[in-house]
């Protein structure tokens, strides 16, 4: 019995099926390729972070050395190695978002939740972090909360969102200033005329 099993980590039935689904994508004997999705599934099952026991469990599961799993899990920043709150709030601080006021967004969240970067609120609801480019520059500034992106934010709007999440209300993810995805706000500024194909 592996250490992980002793400590009680084991796939739930659904996650086992999901893990097998990912492993099946790769040729026989290449099951190790599924290490990243499996780590992600395990992290979700474990409530947001991976532990040594989980990494060893996955190493056993994929028949690979535990150090290789640990290398992957520490290389990618989306695997957490410490417990996090129920909602992981990640503020993008890279140049476009920064130019569009990410500092103010971050300050607003810090003030509202009463925590600093890297900390978790006392009620265990929110963990705050700053990340490098979230890849949604056209909708800067951007904050991701859990699996959702909240875009085109203002300091006021982001605190509203946090409150709504706290109260268990539904929040619509995506642009918060009323525009559709990354289309221009208001009227079209280019390609304004529809030209029939000759």
């Amino acid at each position: 019995m592996s250490t992980a099993e002793k400590k009680g980590f084991c796939w739930t039935k659904e996650n086992e099926a999901l893990a097998q689904h990912h492993i099946a994508k790769y040729p026989e004997g290449r099951q190790q390729s599924a290490v990243m999705p499996l780590l992600d599934i395990a992290q979700r099952q474990n409530g947001g972070h991976v532990t040594v026991e989980i990494m060893e469990y996955i190493a056993d599961y994929l028949d690979m050395p535990a150090i290789r799993v640990q290398e992957v899990a520490t290389f990618y920043t989306m695997y957490n190695h410490r417990p996090i709150g129920k909602h992981h709030v990640q503020v993008c601080g890279t140049t476009p978002c920064w130019l569009r006021g990410s500092d103010k967004i971050l300050a607003a969240i810090e003030a509202h939740l009463g925590i600093k970067k890297g900390e978790t609120t006392a009620d265990g609801l929110f963990t705050l972090g700053e990340v490098e480019c979230a890849g949604a520059c056209v909708n800067a500034p951007v904050v991701s909360i859990g699996d959702d992106y909240f875009e085109d934010l203002s300091p006021e709007r982001v605190t509203e969102i946090l409150d709504m999440i706290k109260d268990g209300k539904d929040v619509v993810a995506g642009p918060q200033n009323g525009r559709q995805t990354s289309a221009p706000l208001g009227e079209l500024t280019s390609l304004t005329e529809f030209v029939e194909k000759a």
Binding site: P65, I67, Q70, E71, T74
Partner: peptide
């Protein structure tokens, strides 16, 4: 042996 973390934080270590 392996290398953990990335970039400036890379560390070579034993398991």
């Amino acid at each position: 042996m392996g290398s953990l973390w990335r970039g400036e934080h890379t560390e070579v270590t034993t398991y």
